[in-house]
Design a protein around this nucleic acid. Structure first.
Length: 466
RNA sequence: GACCCUUUCAUCUAGUGGCCAAGGAUAUUACGUUUUCAACGUAAAAACAGAGGUUCAAAUCCUUUAGGGGUCGCCA
């Protein structure tokens, strides 16, 4: 039994993209499911574009979602000597050759082909060249691709893919300065790392026949290829920064839980019957790349929001208290923390919303919402509030139930509906007509603060009515 | 332009020739619950891209048209 090995191979040119995280998740789950290995490889052969900060940002994102890779991170930039031995080998075997075509000649060729409405490709003019090379041209190395026939492979997601050999030209494997190119090193690394499953975006579908040429030339065994369709925006167009957050870490900043993000992403292009909620264990147990959809999916925030709300509701008090610290709310020393979270946890779809719900209770209103105060602070409201405050200072309730008992008592004594006390009381305590249950709020505030807020409201009413 | 991939409610999807006059979820609307908002519950509305075939039978197989995406670098 061969151990399953998968990988994620980003190029460090920026942050980790939400689409990248999904393919990484699929790869990671495939490895976990089969008790295999998930490797990380940084594709930094283009020295001009990559940066250490980008690598760190990607690693940080993986850390946040809790997807850990096995073994050391592999940097392609440190493996140039290795790649060189394979270039030399192919050259010696006559499977690759030096091409002396200048960049000007190459672009002229492309323009001609474009004008003739052909697919642009290198014409192989140096493939069997034996003459005197032109002066002053540093050659590139090209690999000999098959001239005719079809390159076929079975994609784990899309099924059989056939690409005419005429579509694949003798592509460059080493630049004029000697640096190896992407399709060459990817094939070598994937083979050397022992990959059994390559899971990547289907924007790489056309790279696959090229990489197969390399595998064959070097005598490597082919892995199973799986090409996952892209994530588009809600209009079905390519996801861009204009469509909202594309950086994985933005989701942390917006108050999403990593579990919600992963649950959202796994359901984009993959499903297991009618199931919507997946714990990490279920994901690992149920995931199979065979069930990945062929078609692209559109990104829609609504479902992520719903999932996030779900995971906030499920979260323990202690984990929420920890998470909320990043959002300016520290309940670690608050002895009513548990009651606060019970009162607010269903009202926040994100940690940001949850934090603001909590602050709404903790901080006395600085103003009363115009519409709410007009509706609530009218008629005998002032008198009812007064009586209620008196009753509170007399009974001094300390539990949620005893606060509720006072509410019931005033309703009974004055023979009024709950709304007659509820509405003005709510606006007094919260500043508006929405929010958590009044019993809960009063219990959290305690009798002193409750009375103080009521008195402030009464004063406000008096000033208004002068 | 050439080549490749793809097409079920607004969105994510179930569906592999009969269990489908198409199921679930989100979003939407209504009602219930609630002092309020939310959460929750119940219900409603909502799709097989179009056209041709094959078959007793097609969302499912074939052909074709259209839409969307991708690739065509000495980028990755």
């Amino acid at each position: 039994m061969i151990m399953t090995v998968t990988r994620f191979a980003p190029s460090p040119t920026g942050y980790l993209h939400i689409g990248g995280l999904r393919t990484a998740l699929f790869s990671w789950l495939t490895a976990q499911h089969n008790q295999g290995k998930f490797l990380l490889r940084i594709e930094d052969t283009d020295m001009a574009r990559n940066s250490q900060e980008a690598t760190d940002a990607i690693l940080q994102a993986f850390e946040w979602v809790g997807m850990h890779h096995d073994e050391e991170v592999i940097y392609q930039s440190k493996r140039f000597a290795l790649y060189q031995t394979y270039i030399d080998q192919l050259l010696a075997q006559g499977k690759a050759y030096k091409c002396y075509m200048s960049k000007e000649e190459l672009s002229l060729l492309r323009e001609t082909q474009m004008a003739n409405k052909e697919r642009t490709r290198y014409d192989g003019r140096y493939r069997d060249f034996t003459g005197q090379p032109p002066e002053g041209i540093a050659p590139v190395i090209r690999i000999k691709a098959p001239k005719d026939g079809t390159i076929t492979f079975i994609d784990g997601v899309k099924g059989e893919i056939n690409i005419l050999a005429s579509e694949v030209d003798d592509f460059v494997i080493a630049r004029a300065d000697g640096a190896p190119t992407y399709n060459f090193v990817v094939a070598i690394d994937d083979a050397l790392m022992g990959l059994t499953q390559v899971i990547r975006g289907d924007d790489h579908l056309y790279n696959t026949p090229k990489q197969i040429v390399v595998y064959k030339a070097l005598g490597f065994e082919l892995p199973q290829f799986n090409h996952v369709a892209m994530i588009n925006n809600e209009q079905g167009k390519k996801l861009s920064k204009r469509d909202g957050a594309t950086d994985v870490m933005d989701y942390k900043a917006m108050g999403y839980l990593p579990q919600a993000l992963l649950n959202f992403l796994i359901r984009l292009g993959w499903s297991h019957g009618d199931q919507e909620i997946f714990s990490l264990e279920e994901m690992i147990r149920l995931f199979d790349p065979k069930n990945i959809n062929k078609s692209s999916s559109n990104y829609n925030l609504d479902k992520l929001l719903w999932l996030n709300a779900h995971y906030i509701k499920e979260a323990s008090d202690t984990s929420l208290i920890t998470l909320l610290k990043d959002f300016g709310v520290d309940l670690s020393q608050n002895n009513k923390a548990s009651a606060l979270l019970t009162a607010t946890r269903e009202r926040g779809k994100t940690l940001i919303e949850l934090a603001s719900q909590i602050n709404l209770i903790l901080q006395a209103p600085t103003a009363y919402d115009a519409k709410s105060s007009k509706k609530a602070f009218k008629g005998e409201a002032k008198e009812i509030l007064n009586t209620f405050a008196d009753m509170l200072s007399l009974t001094r309730p300390t539990t949620q139930a005893s606060f509720h008992a006072v509410m019931e008592k005033i309703v009974e004594e004055k023979s009024i509906g709950f709304g007659k006390i509820g509405m003005p009381l709510r606006v007094s305590l919260m500043g508006s007509m929405t929010g958590s249950g009044l019993d809960e709020i009063m219990y959290i505030l305690g009798v002193e603060e409750t009375i103080s807020r009521i008195e402030r409201a009464i004063k406000w009413i008096e000033e208004r009515d002068v």
